[in-house]
Design a protein around this nucleic acid. Sequence first.
DNA 1: GTTTCTGTTGTCAC
DNA 2: CGTGACAACAGAAA
Length: 273
Amino acid sequence: MPELPDVEGFRRVLGRAAKKGVVSRVEVRDRGILHGVSAARLEQALVGARLGSPSRHGKWLVVPIAGGGDRLALHFGMSGSLEWSSRPGEVHPHDRVLVDVDGGRLAFRDQRKLHGIWLVAGDEDLERVTGRLGPDALGLSDAALRARMEGRRARLKSVLMDQRVIAGVGNLTADETLWRARVHPARRWGELDERAQAGISRSLQEVLHASARRGHLLAEPGWLTRVREQPDARCPRCGARLQTTRIGGRTTVWCPSCQREDGPARSGPRRTG
DNA sequence: GTTTCTGTTGTCAC
DNA sequence: CGTGACAACAGAAA
C-alpha cells in the first residue's frame, strides 16, 4: 500500500498516539523488522519515554524520542502499515512490533518485511539509512520541481520515481500523474514544452494533495488508479483500451490515445482552439 | 497438490 | 542510463 499519501496517514496516526502519553511497553514479535538495533535496545530507548511529533520525508517517517537524541526511522516497504487501537484485542499475524501507549496500542504491521524500523542518532546517521533524498514531493513548487528535473535524461516515469530526485512518488502515483497530465511515461523531461512540464507539476500536486488528505492514493471514478488492475481496462477519460508495459522494472499503465509518445493528444475534453 | 508469477518498496551488479 | 536479480511473503494463476 504505502506511497506518500499512505505514509502521511501513518504520520497522523502516530502523531495522535504520541500525544496520549508515555510508552509503557514494547513487544518485538519479529526481529526481522528491526535494522541495526536489537529488541532490547529498542525497548530501552522507548519504554518510559514520550514520542515526539513525527515528520515525513518521502516515504520515510521519522519519530523523535523525547529525552535522548534518538529517533525512529520507519519505512513501510510494499506491505507495511501503522495501526492504532484504543482497545487492543487480537494481535494480527503480521504485527511485528507493538508499542503500548497510555490509552492504546500502536502496531507496526507488515506482511513482506521488505523494510522496517531503524533507530538513528544524528542527521548523518539518518541520511546513511534513508539515502540522500530529494525534496518531499508534497507541496513542491513548480519552480522547485523544474530545478530537480532539469537535465534528467531518463524516461519520465523513472525520474519521477527516483527518490533522490524527488521523494515520495511511487509506481501508482507516477502513472496517475502522467495520465492526468497526458504525458507518455517514456518521454523525457527535456522533450516537453513548458506547458506540458507545468502540467506534470500541477497534476502531481493535485494527485498528492487529494490523496494525502485521505491517507491513501485515491482510486475514485475518473482516476486511472481506479481501473488499472482491470484486465481490459479502458481510459476513464476517452475510453481507449489502456496499455501496460514495464518501465524501470515496474508495471506501467497508460492511455495510448491521451498520452502520445510524440506529443500531447489533440482530442479530448481540452479544447484545441 | 505443486510450481510459477506478481507486486503501492528498495539496492546492487553489470 | 537501462535491465535484471534479489530481498520476504501471500495470494493468484498456471
